[in-house]
Computed example of a mutant assay.
Amino acid sequence: MTRGDRDLKTHRRSRTITAAAVLLAWLSGCAGAQAAAGAPGPRAAASAPPHPAASASPRPVSVAVERGVEYARAGGQALLADVLRPDPPSAVRLPAVVYIHGGSWRRGTREQGHEFLPQLVATGRYVGITIGYRFTPAFPWPAQLDDARAAVRWVRAAADRYGIDPERIAVWGESAGGQIASVLGATGDDAALEGDAPSPQGAQSTARPMSSRVQAVINFCGPTDMAAFFASASTPEEIAEMRGRLDPLFGGPPRERADLVRSASAIHHVDARDPPFLLMHGTRDELVPFRLSVAMHGELLSAGVPSVLVPVAAWGHGFRGAEIDRRVLAFLDRHLWRAPIVASSEPVRAERTPD
């Protein structure tokens, strides 16, 4: 029995039973489809205007890119974003998709979002924002969450400038970015977690502070239970590599930072108010075990939150492919445009790993 298995067994019995039931349902090919077909949850974009193009395939439009926009300043550094918009601009306000890159919380660039966002923006019905954030070891958790929340507040503050509907914002992350996105989505606008990155200029012009709540979450292979993620390392080499990632993130050994580890685990924040989730994960991921997304999916369903789990068949950590892009678009169209479609939970095959 691996250390990861022992750690997972410490979860309460109801969560274990739910995760097992969800995995069995997936194997029969029905769990995700049933979840996707349900009504949007309380934080879903139930008031989103219907869009006649959302279920069709309109002619692609050009994509205009504005690079290096400062969305906040924290820890003595500027936090930058790139904004991708349809060209010509839409005649109606569009949902925004905020992308958070991976890189073990210690590296990576917002350029990684340019692999995904142009395909969405070229449909003419989304604005894309890919963000940078502060890295470890100089900035341990929750600096990364603070920055992501500041980015969402900035998107709302800049809604008029970019033609964004501030009530329709999704967050999408991969690997470490998926972990950040999931915690952000599952914690809503909890005032205790708003963080040290100040709201952008103009964000406090309304009667109440600008919200960092989002209306949909996409997580590509990001860990949603950090204790189980740490425990999944079993060999001395794996443990040393895992500590190289997580000790800087938590400012010390995870076993000595239980409160921080829990706060960074989206699975411990799930409740019925959460927005819809799309979880995509390689079934042979040797870094972040597939079972972590199975458990998160089960927890969301138990709370009554719409969730779709898409296994990336026989694939490891990180994936790209045209069908993967189509699944993301279908999920967003359903929840941000109220398109009458089902976001499929059928396994998908990747075409390549990230560049």
Rank of each mutant, 00 (worst) to 15 (best):
P52I: 02
G102P: 06
S104T: 06
S90Q: 01
G75R: 11
V171I: 15
W141G: 02
D147M: 03
A74F: 12
S14W: 09
Q144G: 00
T10K: 15
V69M: 11
S232C: 06
H269C: 05
A91K: 10
R255G: 11
G244N: 09
A91G: 09
R110L: 14
S62H: 09
A20I: 12
A20W: 12
Q34C: 13
S345E: 09
V261Q: 02
G244E: 02
A176H: 04
A258F: 03
H269Q: 13
T283G: 07
G32Y: 05
V214Y: 01
V121Y: 10
E323A: 14
A72H: 04
T235D: 02
T18M: 15
S47P: 00
Y71S: 04
R156W: 00
L287Y: 04
L24E: 07
H281M: 10
R273K: 11
E256H: 13
V171K: 04
S28Y: 07
H11T: 09
R149M: 08
M1S: 09
P89W: 07
H51E: 11
F230H: 06
P140V: 14
R349F: 09
A81E: 00
S344R: 15
R338K: 07
R291F: 11
A258P: 05
P347Q: 10
D5V: 10
L249Q: 00
P254K: 05
R85M: 08
R43S: 15
W26R: 14
I267C: 06
P276A: 13
Q77T: 07
A350K: 02
T123C: 08
D333G: 07
I131S: 02
L336E: 04
R352S: 15
K9Y: 07
A228P: 07
V83S: 01
G76C: 05
S212T: 02
